[in-house]
Design a protein around this nucleic acid. Structure first.
Length: 203
DNA sequence: CAGAAGATCATCT
DNA sequence: GATGATCTTCTGT
């Protein structure tokens, strides 16, 4: 199905809010990446908020070389490498100087599916972008995209179809680190086959 | 400088 | 449900 040309990118102000608000509102928006291989587009299905006060956030213990992008301009990308082999993609949130980011955990592919299949050879379509590191593979997001300006670059986000509030479920954070106040932190489209799975508290 | 943990995934039982 | 892969980043000494 062709939804026509991608809309304008989400404006900077969209990201210049708390990670919690952005994580909630980014559900249903589109993630787009244009490369010389072609364009891939997906609907954001699942996202996680990482606020400065969150012990699970890379920024919790202050600024370091790695997490510096989280303290910088909202609307840029924060891409980090983990487990020796995976990249994860965040949109930086909050006004500059306050650290915040939203991790994209899953999108539903809607354009460039064959390209995603090529980049994720051998997996079922359902697993093309279901999971933060699978998503970066399908979208060819890596080191080069760290600090990319999502308002004006081949990698951007734009508004999608509106989803009713009831279509979005929020998971309260419990038992992770020291912050156990039950605030929501993970948002996902309820019942979508692209949701990566329920949150299981560690420890 | 060593050690441990890590915002994960694929694969196996 | 458990485990190995693989290496960066941070922390403590």
């Amino acid at each position: 199905m062709n939804r026509g040309p991608a809309a304008l990118p989400l404006p900077r102000e969209f990201f210049e809010r708390s990670a919690l608000e952005v994580a909630r509102d980014v559900i249903g928006c589109l993630l787009v990446h244009d490369t010389d291989e072609g364009r891939v587009v997906g609907v954001v299905i699942e996202a996680e908020a990482y606020s400065q006060e969150d012990p699970a956030s890379h920024a919790f213990r202050g600024r370091t070389p790695r997490n510096a992008p989280m303290f910088e301009a909202p609307g840029r990308a924060y891409v980090y490498f983990t487990y020796g082999m995976h990249y994860c993609f965040n949109a930086v949130t909050d006004p500059e100087g306050r650290a915040g980011a939203v991790l994209l955990r899953a999108v539903e592919p809607i354009e460039g599916i064959d390209l995603m299949r090529a980049r994720r050879a051998g997996v079922r379509d359902r697993d093309l972008a279901r999971g933060p590191a699978r998503l970066t593979q399908a979208f060819a997001i890596g080191r080069e995209q760290n600090r990319a300006d999502l308002i004006a670059s081949p990698l951007f986000m734009c508004p999608g179809e509106r989803l009713s509030n009831r279509a979005v479920e929020a998971t309260p954070r419990i038992g992770l680190g020291r912050l156990q106040d039950g605030r929501p932190w993970r948002f996902a489209v309820r019942g979508s086959p692209w949701v990566s799975g329920p949150v299981r508290p560690k420890g």
